[in-house]
Computed example of a mutant assay.
Amino acid sequence: MPDKPRIALTLGDPAGVGPELAAKLLAEPATAELADLRVIASVDEFARATEQAQVEVPVTAATESGSVILIDPQRTAPLPTGTAATSAEAGRWALDGLRFALDLATSGEVDGICFTPLNKTSLHLAGMTEEDELRWFANTLGHQGRTSEFNVLDALWTGRVTSHISLAEVPELITADAVAETVALLDRALRDSGVDQPRIAVAALNPHAGENGHFGRQEIDEIAPGVLRARAAGATVDGPFPSDTVFLKAKAGLYDGVVTMYHDQGQIAMKLIGFDRGVTVQGGLPVPITTPAHGTAFDIVGTNSADLGATRNAFGLAVKLARQQIARSAA
């Protein structure tokens, strides 16, 4: 195994449950055993997080293995005091922390990033013009390649050809190239997670997979050709399958990953299977970045009742992907 990876952890939206979850994660002894932690937070932010979670977390400025190092990104604005509500201040605070973590990654000081939940409304109020944080990450990093948000539940992964756009925009963005490229991204991510020969299913766009063109031709003209291109490039991939049955096959263990055509097509299935365990991976970026798949949970902020399961899984997956990247770089 490669050396322990260095993981940057940001506390997400300060108005949500993210700070509480980060503090709970850091309070678990196993967390520091898996990675060297760089916690991106101000002293006040970190103190408030540990108070919310009712835990004590020793931190250090040293860099010895196994330590939890608190790094203040020196934001110019004060820590937002409001909780359980959207605001430009909270969104700006979260983006500034993530931008600092990206700087650490690009300078080679960390091997991966894990962040607790964000709120997209607050991010947009803060000036984010991209449709989601994945595209913001890509633009901030200057990354030009295809990206896809992956959702992970236990051993099952999903990727999607389109994501945070209106349903009216989806059909025109379903192309054979987009399908093939998303399959390739998911195939590589699954291999990085430890699956030697990933088996991938591709969902159709239309009901009954278009029923031979009666309900639309995307399956015939774009999705099936995309599957064939991905297969010719070396992926083990089948489809398109009707989207109301493809997850039955995946849940039964016939596939390791599913490529869907739009956001809710996969998210509804994954969250029904296991909402409290899911992880989101910012797929296609040059640095591993993960987060729990749930949101800021404003309704339970301050109650110290946020479930740690998804955050613990997100951190563990960031460690695994970072280890794989370290090993690949050393090869």
Rank of each mutant, 00 (worst) to 15 (best):
216 G>Y: 01
322 A>R: 01
55 V>E: 02
184 A>I: 03
89 E>H: 10
275 F>L: 02
330 A>K: 12
41 A>G: 08
72 D>H: 05
148 S>G: 05
138 A>P: 02
16 G>C: 04
230 A>K: 03
151 N>I: 14
102 L>Q: 11
326 I>M: 09
103 D>T: 12
246 V>I: 11
170 V>A: 01
222 E>S: 11
331 A>I: 13
214 H>S: 14
230 A>R: 02
116 T>K: 07
18 G>E: 03
154 D>A: 14
62 A>T: 15
72 D>K: 01
194 G>Y: 02
66 G>A: 04
16 G>M: 05
171 P>T: 01
317 L>P: 01
228 L>A: 15
279 V>F: 08
125 L>M: 10
304 N>F: 09
120 K>L: 10
302 G>N: 01
270 M>S: 00
57 V>Q: 07
217 R>K: 15
185 L>S: 03
15 A>Q: 07
216 G>M: 00
137 F>Y: 07
144 Q>N: 13
310 A>V: 00
71 I>R: 13
106 T>K: 14
95 L>R: 10
268 I>P: 07
215 F>H: 10
299 D>T: 00
232 A>Y: 09
37 L>T: 13
29 P>M: 03
168 A>Y: 13
75 R>Q: 15
110 V>D: 12
117 P>S: 06
61 A>G: 14
270 M>D: 05
34 L>G: 11
123 L>P: 01
10 T>A: 03
297 A>D: 07
120 K>H: 06
286 P>Y: 05
312 R>F: 09
234 G>K: 08
119 N>V: 00
149 E>L: 10
194 G>R: 00
67 S>Q: 15
96 D>H: 11
295 G>N: 03
48 R>H: 12
160 R>S: 08
276 D>E: 12
313 N>S: 10
73 P>A: 02
320 K>Q: 11
184 A>L: 08
177 D>S: 11
104 L>N: 02
296 T>N: 00
222 E>F: 07
157 W>G: 11
74 Q>L: 13
141 L>R: 09
163 S>F: 13
255 Y>H: 10
141 L>H: 03
44 D>E: 15
252 A>R: 14
272 L>W: 11
207 P>V: 01
35 A>I: 06
168 A>K: 15
69 I>H: 15
299 D>E: 02
73 P>H: 00
34 L>A: 15
285 L>E: 07
103 D>Y: 09
142 G>W: 03
275 F>A: 04
212 N>A: 11
322 A>G: 02
299 D>W: 04
60 T>C: 03
41 A>Q: 06
178 A>K: 05
305 S>R: 15
202 V>I: 08
96 D>Y: 08
24 K>Q: 09
15 A>Y: 03
132 D>K: 03
43 V>W: 12
82 G>Y: 13
301 V>I: 00
122 S>W: 06
213 G>E: 02
68 V>R: 15
99 R>W: 12
264 D>V: 02
150 F>T: 04
300 I>H: 03
118 L>M: 00
171 P>C: 07
53 A>V: 01
171 P>D: 05
198 P>N: 06
139 N>S: 10
315 F>W: 07
80 P>G: 06
117 P>M: 06
163 S>G: 09
143 H>S: 05
173 L>M: 14
56 E>Q: 15
146 R>T: 12
311 T>E: 13
262 Y>K: 00
330 A>Y: 08
82 G>R: 14
178 A>S: 05
72 D>E: 04
